[in-house]
């Protein structure tokens, strides 16, 4: 905005002036169109869910009678699966990032290979992780693929590259002087990483991992492949229990015949949106509150 304004004041070249204002206008138009559709989508979904924003959405299990149906199993399933996912992906992801950023010799061919692969894995379609997990579970001889540990494994594989990449970014942002200073004072490499580099990078790591985990919450494709599209009326009660999650419940309700189920699907979509927005809010809060400026 300010740049365009400056140009118009200088006004040396009318044609250039006109072009830049046109370009700016186009950019604003694009933003407006994208935003408009988002608002329309949000408002219609919110309206469609009207009448089902009640406590029974949280307390009732799915039911073939829409008036008695709720998303309890799906909400608990989502929370459980994502918690297990976080426990699997975050420690491994951070450890891998610390190795690659702080210890790995980048001239070695195997480190280059790992690096290239992680970059590529971050762009792999989610459904492929579902297929991979299905293969792993079959190899392990697990009969029921639609179990919490299976879903978590698929989602953990999905977000692992993201966790690694964001953690590396955060580590890279820690100034070299901090490491040098720590080493100069006689700390070992491990002490430097655990006492200086990692703590300094924690705000960045936390932001990245929260965003990665919120991606896992919204994901349905890899879980569908594991057969998570099931009618379930109980809480997920163990790592090997069957489960369903909110995106899958929404998917299943939208294909039901009764309009009341579509209403439920809309209400659950809004709930999922609220969860995702609050997770992103927490991520932004952590970044603003704790991020250090060097």
């Amino acid at each position: 905005m300010t740049t365009a304004a400056n140009w118009s004041i200088e006004g040396k070249n009318h044609e250039r002036n006109f072009k830049s204002i046109m370009f700016l206008g186009l950019l604003w138009l694009s933003l407006f169109v994208a935003f408009l559709f988002l608002i329309i989508l949000l408002v219609t979904t919110a309206m469609n869910g009207m009448g089902r924003y009640d406590i029974r959405l949280f307390t009732d299990y799915n039911n073939t009678t829409p008036a008695d149906a709720g998303a309890r199993a799906a909400i608990l399933g989502s929370l459980f699966v994502v918690t297990v996912t976080a426990f699997m992906a975050i420690p491994i992801g951070i450890a891998a990032a610390v190795y690659l950023e702080e210890f790995a010799d980048r001239t070695k061919w195997y480190n280059k290979l790992i690096e290239l692969n992680i970059q590529n894995l971050a762009a792999v379609p989610a459904i492929l992780y579902g297929m991979l997990t299905l293969g792993i579970l079959t190899l392990l001889g697990l009969k029921n693929k639609n179990v919490v540990i299976g879903g978590s494994l698929a989602l953990a594989l999905l977000i692992l590259p993201v966790v690694i990449l964001t953690t590396r970014e955060a580590l890279r942002a820690v100034p070299q002087e901090i490491r040098d200073g720590s080493l100069a004072l006689g700390a070992t490499e491990v002490q430097t990483v655990t006492k200086q580099t990692l703590p300094a990078a924690i705000p960045g790591i936390a932001t990245g991992t929260i965003l990665a985990v919120s991606r896992a919450i919204g994901e349905a494709a890899p879980l569908l492949l594991l057969g998570a599209l099931v009618f379930i009326t109980y809480d997920p009660n163990g790592l090997f229990a069957g489960f369903t999650t909110m995106p899958i419940q929404i998917f299943s309700w939208t294909s039901a015949a009764q309009d009341e189920f579509k209403q439920l699907a809309a209400a659950t979509s809004m709930l999922l949106l609220v969860i995702l927005l609050s997770m992103n809010g927490v991520a932004i809060f952590i970044r603003n509150k704790f991020a250090k400026r060097w």
Binding site: Y99, E101, F103, D105
Partner: peptide, 28 residues
């Protein structure tokens, strides 16, 4: 980026992998 002692890496990384592997064994 300091050239860290590879020996340190040789300890830390297998330890991390071992932890992961333990998790795997449990689920097995």
């Amino acid at each position: 980026m300091p050239r860290f002692n590879l020996k340190v890496a040789a300890v830390v990384i297998p330890a991390a992998l071992l932890l992961a592997a333990c998790g795997g064994t449990n689920s097995g």
